[in-house]
Computed example of a mutant assay.
Amino acid sequence: MLDKLALLGFGPGGWGQPLLQGAFITISIALATLPFGLVLGLLVALGKRSDNVVLRWLATGYTTVFRGVPELLTLYIIYFGVQIVLQEFWQWLGLPGAFSMPPFVAGMVALGVVLSAFTSEVWVGALNAIPKGQREAAAALGLSKAHAFRLVVFPQLIRVALPGLGNNWMVLLKETSLVSVITLPDIMFITTRANVVTKEPFLFFGAAILIYFAFSLASAWGLGKLEARTNRGMATFGGATR
């Protein structure tokens, strides 16, 4: 038993250092994907609420496609398909060398596109929950639409959307495991390789479970603190929030 646990250590023959590096890659790609997916999702949500019919159709089509296509297929399309298109464009421009998309970038874009499709629905629900009178009051005060959104709508939007966005973050943490198929050395890539070398699947996949579980616990704690902060000043009396 001790010999098996030594495989998780940092000594000779131990996989402790690669596991830490894999955990760092996992949390790095999740943190890099989050702002990209949230901002893109908000833009898609605004498109779905736009007065422009074309924008509404494009935004609706975007969410329909990327919510319906498997995440792994999206990853393959971006890593292999988009890379081929960009490579041909690179050659058409007559630029020297060859274009190569780093696996980290491809993983971030693919996961971000999927995340944006799901977060757009959260943003739309949150936007619908904010009374129209808030925007009318901002307009009455002479605020432009951009200033009204930044100063009046967005602070309320974050508070309403945060629980749904938190759920999407937890899903994103698990979906980062997909990037192992494009040779990005995340937790799943390292543990799979360690299993091939040592023939100890329960040990290393069990270690992966514990690492993901630790990330989830830390995320749940952080999201709880963030929700408490965004809800500060909101008092409930007899079931009504004031």
Rank of each mutant, 00 (worst) to 15 (best):
W123H: 05
W169S: 09
V124P: 03
A140Q: 01
P102I: 12
S100E: 14
N128C: 04
V114W: 07
Q134N: 04
Q87H: 14
I78M: 04
F89R: 14
T63L: 05
Y76E: 06
L93T: 11
F118R: 06
R150L: 14
L172C: 06
A126M: 06
W123Q: 08
L75I: 14
V85E: 07
L95A: 11
G61M: 09
V109Q: 12
Q83Y: 06
A137H: 11
L111Y: 03
P155G: 03
M108W: 00
P131R: 12
V171D: 10
E136L: 08
H147M: 13
E71A: 10
P102K: 13
M101R: 06
L95D: 08
V69T: 05
P96V: 11
P155E: 10
G112H: 06
R159Q: 00
A148M: 10
P103D: 10
G125Y: 04
F80K: 09
L72G: 08
L75Y: 10
T119L: 15
V53C: 00
K132E: 13
L115V: 05
F118A: 09
P131S: 02
I130E: 11
V85Q: 04
I130P: 03
Y76C: 12
F154D: 09
T60L: 00
A129P: 02
V153H: 11
H147E: 10
L143M: 10
F80C: 12
G61W: 07
V153F: 12
N167P: 05
V114D: 02
V113C: 02
S144N: 03
I77H: 08
L172I: 06
G94K: 06
E88S: 11
A129S: 03
L127S: 08
A146N: 07
L173P: 02
L93P: 12
G97I: 10
V153Q: 09
I77W: 05
G107Q: 01
R56G: 00
E71M: 15
P103Q: 06
F89Y: 13
M108N: 00
I130Q: 08
F104L: 07
A110R: 06
F89S: 13
G107P: 03
Q134G: 02
I77K: 12
F104C: 14
G61C: 02
Y79A: 00
S144C: 11
L143K: 05
G61S: 08
P163Y: 03
E121P: 01
I78A: 10
L151M: 14
